[in-house]
Design a protein around this nucleic acid. Structure first.
Lengths: 301, 301
DNA sequence: TTGAAAGCGCTAACAA
DNA sequence: TTGTTAGCGCTTTCAA
């Protein structure tokens, strides 16, 4: 054995037929929820002898397509897809499934197709948030959702509707709007929504990242959070705890989510013919201060 | 040529002796400044025919060491290192340099050793911020820096000192403290610093990410931003524009930074024997509202 | 136990 | 122009 010898990864992978690496496709590198879930995924993957490659599709279908190809060309053994872009690459996903490329998804439970996936119960999330807001006396509740995930938000809207119906409060479809995935988009959506419907006193955002843009919007409109306008997020990212007014939000176990995704991809890589599995995680309402102090002590970290 | 033929990346890389991929080592996946710079790097890399692998060391030397090995085993052709962990892996870096592994660094200009690097002029940054605060009438200015980068902050401190000396304002070494890299660490550092030194009326943070934790801390201490306490960050991340009180900060061209890093790594990969190059970028003071409205119109986006 | 040889799937060089 | 072949550096198998 020569000194200074350095093994070559490609030769090794070529002959072994696998890399012990899994690709993790992330839709938005600036939203720290994906850093959190990514960290959980990586921890579990490490424990099972896999390395992770994090791939940022940034909402671009052709980028996602390129990353999907990494599984085809053998650069990774399997794929965990946290991306939103499903319909644009529908054909590619179909082909991958035919080719038996190991893939698992993190998505809403209503994602179509027979695939392995871990999801959060969005209907329950929508119901928990809306009930909380209605209980606090809000009658005009806005929703700002992410355009890219539009076709997978039925659950959230169902929960919203159910909570209203239970209390006999009428629903205004025009209180719902869609925006992009950047903080800036949350900011503009908030300004626009409150501009058109000043009677709205509470807004439920698609995620915490978007909700962070709401604070400046509210301030510029002369509305104080939470006295004049309530704000609720989704994801429970760290930043939400450290806003000037800590953010009320929906949380779920990121550790468990990461763990399950890795468990699933490992199972799929080992047993390509097992039937697909779907797991739905329960959401939890985390009450901080952005909706008022009513029951603020309950969950503050 | 068979139908359904899929090329194998490893065989290709093995025979070509290169991958056209570069690894980008990122110290903290939750700080969005690295997403921004990463996006700039990737854009430039794409344009030159390279793909990027983003690797999150999360401040752990052994993780960084593992990623460094990707260049050794041929998984990537070169490395862009944005990490802070230099001293723990000093030996490894030395060996990589001896082995002629292409590497470039993003770091403070006082980083030791003869290496390719792109930096921002930290002394000027420290001077700009401190001068601005002194001009606004602040006499007791705190600094909250990142522990992990402690040995590379001389420049920033020099600028701080120079601004004080020019105005004959005395410096209190105890106004300077160090913390971790998470928002939470910024929050705790702020509470602790203002707790021990309530006379402080302005705080300059190591970066925007840490500074975001300051808002909640200030509020809990009964101090309003900016009326009772001024806050300044560094990096100009998007979130800083959308805080309830938009953050005054130091900006620099992330596009140019990314471009230069990629340019440098390409040069290094082509010409392993060229002498190392150092480029220092100018910082720019971006005045928003977190230090008071004095000259607030100047730079607001 | 140790050593030699086959071959993974591709590219590049060379021959036809 | 098109087709054939050597060989990249490893792991695994089989022989000694």
């Amino acid at each position: 054995m020569k000194l200074g010898w350095r093994p070559n990864a490609h030769a090794r992978h070529l002959v072994r037929g696998r890399t012990d690496r899994i690709g993790v496709i992330i839709p938005d590198s600036r939203n720290t929820i994906f850093s959190d879930i990514g960290a959980a995924i990586e921890a579990e993957a490490q424990a099972r002898g896999y390395d992770c490659l994090f791939l940022h599709s940034e909402g671009a279908p052709q980028r996602e397509a390129k990353f999907l190809n990494l599984a085809v060309d053998g650069s990774v053994d399997g794929l965990i897809v946290m991306a939103n872009v499903l319909k644009e690459n529908h054909e590619i996903y179909d082909r991958l499934r035919e080719d038996r490329i190991p893939m698992v998804f993190r998505a809403g439970p209503e994602t179509p197709g027979i695939v392995d996936l871990v999801a959060v119960d969005l209907e329950k999330a929508g119901y928990l948030v809306t009930s909380h807001l209605l209980n606090l006396g809000h009658q005009h509740i806005g929703m700002i959702l992410q355009e890219a995930a539009k076709d997978r938000q039925m659950g959230r809207l169902d929960g919203y509707r159910k909570a209203h119906e239970e209390r006999g409060v009428s629903i205004h479809p025009e209180y719902k709007c869609y925006c992009g995935y950047r903080v800036e988009d949350g900011y503009h959506a908030m300004r626009s929504l409150l501009g058109h419907h000043p009677e709205i006193t509470a807004v439920f955002f698609h995620n915490d990242h978007l909700a962070l843009g709401a604070f400046r919007a509210a301030r510029e409109l002369g509305r104080r959070v939470p006295q004049d306008i309530a704000v609720v997020g989704y994801d429970n990212i760290e930043l939400g705890r450290f806003c000037e007014v800590p953010l009320t939000t929906i949380g779920y176990s990121k550790e468990l989510l990461g763990q399950l995704l890795v468990e699933m991809i490992c199972r799929r890589m080992k047993f390509p013919d097992h039937p697909p599995q779907r797991i739905v995680l329960p959401p939890e309402l985390i009450i901080r201060e952005s909706c008022g102090y009513a029951t603020a002590r309950q969950h503050t970290p």
